[in-house]
Computed example of a mutant assay.
Amino acid sequence: MPVNVLFAARPERWETYEAPLRAALSEAGVEANLATQMPAHEVDYIVYAPNSGVEDFAPFTRAKAVLNLWAGVEDVVGNPTLHLPLARMVDHGLTQGMVEWVTGHVLRHHLGMDAHILGQDGIWRKDIPPLAQDRRVTMLGLGALGQACAEALGRLGFAMTGWSRSQKEIDGVTCLSGDQGLRAALQAADILVLLLPLTGDTENILNRETLAYLPHGAVIVNPGRGPLIDDDALLAALDSGDVGHATLDVFREEPLPMKHPFWAHPQVTVTPHIASETRQKSASQVIAENIRRGEAGEPFIHLVNRELGY
């Protein structure tokens, strides 16, 4: 008997996901009835985007899992009606895209490329950057995305430090945890990359106090979550020169309002939440694998820890 899979996301997502999902389910050997509408009590799996409009999971009495289309789950993990297993999206395409974006912007700041790209004014600026081994990069967040980015930067020779809430061990990365570890990680950051999940413990993790731990003139690169940073504290640090530049891909409100001071600040680069995007083909394969596992009685992959929030 086919399993019933509800695709709960905005209509434009269905247009791009329908064919890859059907193909992935077929390749996984799963016979499925895939649709955007069906009676809640008949649904076996929910492929879910938090902006879909589905907020009450209580009617889904026979569903086995909610399979999130996004890597971030902060908009659903606290839903009091959700008692089903919740899997976040860990997708090779998303990971590779994040590695490429982070590597590109870290190299941009490491090499001082802006001076030559923007400074076409006849001035011969021969400022030689240090080698990567002499540039300290800190990664806040060592989950799947953070670890992949830290390893990629480490292979380029950067002196890598990583911080996470729980202690990790990664070859080529000095791994720290805890409050004292956070301070040491920030103090070791010529370039700081944020790839933490958004939880009650990580919101505003960069604030007036913690920003002061950074070396003078440090660069911040945030492709993680907007609320990881206190905007007012960051602007003050940029105005004083304590932070040399901030490249920001995520914001508290998106699209970033036109009147937000980030747009006009000379030491801020705004990118429109493009650091990484879930790729339909590879994401569909992840979803299909979890449905195959559920039907085979095998453990789901990428399950969210409700207590930790990710």
Score class of each variant (00 low, 15 high):
residue 252 R to D: 15
residue 254 E to C: 11
residue 79 N to D: 01
residue 110 H to G: 01
residue 205 I to R: 05
residue 209 E to I: 10
residue 84 L to R: 05
residue 100 E to F: 09
residue 29 G to L: 03
residue 27 E to K: 09
residue 295 E to H: 00
residue 53 G to C: 10
residue 6 L to S: 02
residue 105 H to Y: 15
residue 190 D to Q: 07
residue 63 A to H: 06
residue 145 L to E: 10
residue 27 E to L: 11
residue 189 A to Y: 05
residue 298 E to P: 00
residue 300 F to L: 15
residue 94 L to S: 08
residue 23 A to I: 03
residue 172 G to H: 05
residue 227 P to S: 06
residue 210 T to V: 02
residue 111 L to I: 11
residue 92 H to A: 15
residue 160 M to H: 03
residue 149 C to H: 05
residue 286 V to I: 14
residue 112 G to V: 00
residue 231 D to I: 05
residue 76 V to T: 03
residue 26 S to P: 06
residue 20 P to C: 02
residue 149 C to Q: 11
residue 202 T to D: 12
residue 276 S to P: 07
residue 2 P to H: 06
residue 216 H to C: 12
residue 148 A to Y: 10
residue 122 G to M: 05
residue 198 L to N: 03
residue 269 T to D: 15
residue 88 R to G: 06
residue 191 I to H: 00
residue 33 N to F: 09
residue 13 R to A: 10
residue 87 A to L: 06
residue 248 L to R: 02
residue 130 P to D: 11
residue 277 E to Q: 12
residue 202 T to I: 12
residue 167 Q to T: 10
residue 160 M to G: 06
residue 146 G to R: 11
residue 290 N to R: 00
residue 58 A to N: 14
residue 199 T to E: 12
residue 253 E to T: 15
residue 34 L to T: 05
residue 285 Q to L: 09
residue 144 A to C: 13
residue 42 E to M: 13
residue 296 A to V: 12
residue 253 E to D: 13
residue 237 A to K: 04
residue 206 L to G: 11
residue 165 R to P: 02
residue 103 T to W: 06
